[in-house]
Design a protein around this nucleic acid. Structure first.
Lengths: 201, 201
DNA sequence: TATTGATAAGTACGACCGTTCGGTTTATAA
DNA sequence: TTATAAACCGAACGGTCGTACTTATCAATA
């Protein structure tokens, strides 16, 4: 995240807090994110930090916002530099790998939060669902483009593609993070490759 | 769970506690499982309940044990009544669907805990990894049997099959629970079907 | 230089956390 | 019947939690 000189001091602090909060969240989960501990980590008082958000729920949703823009900037947007169709989809996966590596602390915050909040209604869940929906829709859209440019078959079910595409990413996460399976990346690469093959013209 | 008359009073109580604890866990996660709240739910005092486990970590790992035997009894073992090979794999999926429905409260406790504890080392994580390893190995083994009986191609990479098989189940969980996607089951059924097709002789 | 408004710190509160302890009831066995 | 152990309770401990108030700091402006 670039520190803009145009930022007010408050905004800078907030940015710094959110960065630390996201780091913590990807490790311990959104629910375990505690204001006191976070304040200690960024060298602020609990109340000083609290003043930026005024509620824990607000802090949580803003962490999701922050993670989302981070994800969009590092995974989705850069892929747009690649040509439409298959190259763009492949770039997305490559960026995803890099993103997972970079956040070697804790895994994908969305994946973790998704299972954490699947039965916890509220503002956080709503936020989460919105972002996951957006992400999956971007996968659907990628497939549609691949159809448009003639890479994928005309009768491709793009929603179906997105489901399988994302499922494999979830599997990768679990094999890599929890099971510490050495071949996780290999397994995913091959699965992704075979998935693509199924839709090629 | 059958209440055996041979159970001592303590064992019966423990069983009842674990049942409630698993119910709670699948909804709110292992980390949010609180002794006080659990005691209230089963109508006991905090300390009375605590006496059965002597630590929260022990309670958590025993909930995992309980969930595992439950899963094995309801999903894996019944599938063994089906003929070896494809029918058995298909039965496993059907049992999985039924199991998800039955636990309509909260989703698969393992899936949730897997992402919750992927960066939280300790006894709970070790337990969890053990059970997930066992489960995935049972999928690998199912594929191996399918090869043995001539349903799957001789050169089938069974570990590869298990990765994709389980990934789709994770995707199903997320689409169904969090995204409340109506077509979740449909999407999974078709993905599973296509997956099987790839390995058929 | 004085004033103001934003930012952070300080302090306090009630709620809940896991855990310990001592005592009371209940079941088992001699 | 009596001795022993298990099961359970209520109260309390030290901590941490989120949140609400009040106070201090300090840059920008008047």
């Amino acid at each position: 995240m670039v520190k803009l000189s145009s930022m007010s001091r408050g905004a800078e602090t907030k940015e710094m807090i959110l960065k630390a909060a996201l780091d913590f969240t990807s490790r311990w989960g959104l629910e375990s994110l505690s204001i006191g501990e976070l304040a200690k980590k960024v060298g602020m008082s609990k109340s000083g930090l609290f003043g930026h958000f005024n509620s824990k729920e607000k802090l949580q949703t803003m962490v999701l916002d922050y993670a989302s823009t981070n994800f969009v900037n590092e995974v989705l947007l850069p892929a747009f530099k690649s040509p439409r169709g298959i190259p763009r989809i492949e770039a997305t996966v490559e960026n995803w790998y890099a993103w997972m590596d970079k956040q070697h602390t804790g895994g994908c915050p969305f994946a973790a939060a998704a299972f954490e909040y699947d039965d916890r209604p509220g503002a956080v869940q709503d936020h989460l669902r919105k972002y996951l929906d957006e992400m999956i829709n971007s996968f659907v859209r990628s497939a549609e483009i691949a159809v448009e440019v003639g890479h994928f078959k005309k009768d491709t079910d793009c929603k179906e593609f997105a489901f399988r595409f994302y499922s494999y990413l979830l599997g990768l996460h679990l094999y890599d993070r929890l099971l510490k399976e050495d071949q996780a990346l290999e397994l995913h690469k091959k699965a992704f490759h075979d998935l693509m093959s199924n839709y090629l013209v």
